[in-house]
Design a protein around this nucleic acid. Structure first.
Lengths: 200, 200
DNA sequence: CGCGTTGTTGGACAAGTGCGCAATATGTGC
DNA sequence: GCACATATTGCGCACTTGTCCAACAACGCG
């Protein structure tokens, strides 16, 4: 294969890893899978990464960060905190065969056994929670939302979304993506509205 | 090893599988691990189970069903729906190194690749949701709770608990077990109380 | 052009995987 | 006590895993 610069090659490895993980899941992705996907030898991967744990952690970092950045952008456009929350919910809710969510499932399960992956997963989960917390805080400032603990509220909102999304991906057709969106919106309304609330 | 009756042997295999899974996780449990744990040969496992997927599914079924039964019993004792809900939350919230929760993480991740495991995981998840829904329905009947959709409320409650519990086990020390209990109680209060609510 | 740096190869390596099967041990019904 | 059923063994099979390394090749600098 063509000789690439270290940066390009690392990127190529990460891309190839994600392409494989998309098909087989993170936990089932092997060195040789990645090499075959790139059309190179397997030894090349270890020239750039210390271990398979590193490869998977880097790849997961890339995919999850990309989703996070996309959500941030989509949210940034919206004027009101309520609209921002809707966009967040919409961009997080997975479709039946959502491969990013399957990546998260793998990451959570493998975290106990792969230190590098755990670190990445933990950091990104915290960032998602921060994103939600910031939306809530802005909403409270503008008077649109009411809560006495934005941090806890953000964790609850993110968690209900994680919990529901997980059902869609792991147990396909037990509940649907529409359920996830509707039920999370309903939870957000209960969480952030003072007194009586209305769900459309 | 001593010759056991088919029933006893199947039980022994299931027990041994759980003992290994407790240490290494479901996804990392192998035929030979289980055989060594039992002190028998590996061929014996395939005499009783068609595939490793079957072994893992049966073992997970056993462990998760046990937890569910224990929760049912603990809940059955309590007089009020509110007390029942507290017991449910308390018995579901995991400690840092909770191995049953790690089993769930593995099951959710592996579900995409192991059909038998997916089936068991789906069924047991549904049963947990039913348990919560029944508590809510009894609470509504007695006037203690208020909701217009017990099914959705149960999914939301179970999901927020799943989502929070997952953080404790996968990203230890990001949030604590106490956070999980407190925040879920708070979510339940918002979910099931009409008008203003109070959290102690 | 030549030379050193380094990206890349391709296979060796030891360990591990699920699964299958002939042979053996053990218990039960006759 | 014999025979049959079957629980159990122990190893083989074909394959996969992560990691490592000597050799080869391409590029940039002098």
């Amino acid at each position: 294969m063509a000789r690439l610069s270290p940066d390009d090659r690392r990127q190529a490895i990460t891309d190839a890893t994600l392409a494989v993980a998309r098909r087989k899941g993170l936990g089932a992705t092997t060195v040789r899978d990645v090499a075959t996907e790139m059309g190179t030898s397997s030894g090349l991967i270890h020239h750039y990464f210390d271990s398979m744990d590193d490869v998977l952690a880097t790849a997961f970092d890339e995919a999850a960060s990309r989703d996070l950045a996309r959500a941030r952008t989509a949210i940034g456009d919206k004027p009101s905190a309520a609209a921002q929350l809707d966009v967040f919910i919409d961009s997080y809710a997975p479709v039946q065969s959502d491969w990013t969510m399957q990546l998260w499932l793998d990451a959570w399960a493998e975290a106990a056994r792969r230190p590098a992956l755990q670190q990445v997963s933990r950091r990104l989960n915290r960032e998602w929670q921060s994103l939600v917390r910031e939306i809530i805080e802005r909403g409270v400032e503008s008077g649109a939302f009411a809560t006495d603990d934005a941090d806890a509220a953000a964790w609850r909102l993110l968690s209900v979304l994680d919990g529901l999304a997980l059902q869609v991906v792991a147990h396909d057709a037990l509940i649907t993506r529409d359920d996830v969106v509707e039920w999370t919106r309903s939870a957000a309304a209960r969480e952030l509205t003072k007194g009586a609330w209305h769900v459309s």
